[in-house]
Design a protein around this nucleic acid. Structure first.
Lengths: 157, 157
DNA sequence: ACCAATTAGTTTTACATGAAACTAATTAAA
DNA sequence: TTTAATTAGTTTCATGTAAAACTAATTGGT
């Protein structure tokens, strides 16, 4: 009975905890909100444009501008105009920025460890697979509905 | 290799999809943001105070005030001052509000169905259990850390 | 009975974010 | 080559939220 209880609520709960935990863990480095995600992305995709970062991390380009401006002021990243296309800023992580990566990774790892602490290795593996599987379902669903979009612009009646 | 990949990112992705989906599904009823959650809670906890709703749903009381004010204007809920304690507003769902519950439930159900569509019944069951288990881990962790708090107020050095 | 502390709710303030409008550079089409 | 469309990035605007300050009511201690 009531087996179909709200999965969304559980996900939301876990999400907000994760968010809060990471936020606190990184506040001493002055990394707020999406800043750590941008840094982390740059640590292995150095030289990305702002637009590319925004798209990859699913933030608006307005937010990307703001986040990167802040990170630049803090000296964690620097920007260079692309030589071939003067619209594009290539964003690079600085040495100082790269110095934060271990701290970011351990904050993420700490949360993972807490979050998964009551699961066996096998359960953890299954859980990861199910998360991947459902995530892919959603990615696929999005792809289909964005295709659908075009056909939906029709006069009603 | 790189087995400890970011679970938080997956959770965040799923969360934002859920959010977006529900938001769209309910916008025609003028239910934005946390409004549906308040209504849903009231549908089985009728007569809750605002503070109780806020605490239960993990929103600030400022947000609770605004959400309930809006819902009241729309006629989906009404408030009555508690007779014994005149600080408290008891919040009740109206007939009109209760009329939205099926729509809310089916929006949630629709998303569940999409989200779980690639899982077998058995996988779904396992997934739900793992979500519950990890959620409880976090609840427990919070309980412990809030206890800890008191001991952390000590002079440094 | 009085005053301090607490509690429920509201208002104010600060901030984060996305959408839309905008600017500048590039590409495509004529 | 000139013009239109597109693209990267910025700025402006509207919105949603929590924290803090505030008000009013209640409770507890003396």
């Amino acid at each position: 009975m009531k087996q179909s209880e709200r999965i969304g609520a559980k996900i939301a709960y876990i999400f907000s905890h994760n968010h809060r935990y990471i936020e606190r863990a990184l506040e001493s480095y002055n990394l707020k909100g999406p800043m750590f995600a941008f840094l982390l992305t740059l640590s292995h995709k150095d030289g990305c444009s702002q637009e590319c970062l925004a798209r990859y991390l699913k933030f608006s380009k307005a937010t990307a501008t703001r986040v990167i401006t802040t990170l630049e002021k803090q000296g964690y990243v620097y920007r260079e105009k692309d030589e071939d296309d003067r619209r594009i800023y290539r964003v690079f992580i600085s040495d100082e920025g790269r110095g934060l990566i271990p701290a970011i990774n351990s904050a993420l790892q700490e949360w993972n460890d807490i979050f998964l602490s009551d699961l066996s290795d096998e359960e953890e593996q299954i859980f990861r697979n199910l998360l991947d599987k459902t995530k892919n379902t959603l990615v696929e669903f999005d792809r289909k509905s964005s295709k659908q979009m075009k056909n939906n612009y029709q006069i009603s009646g």
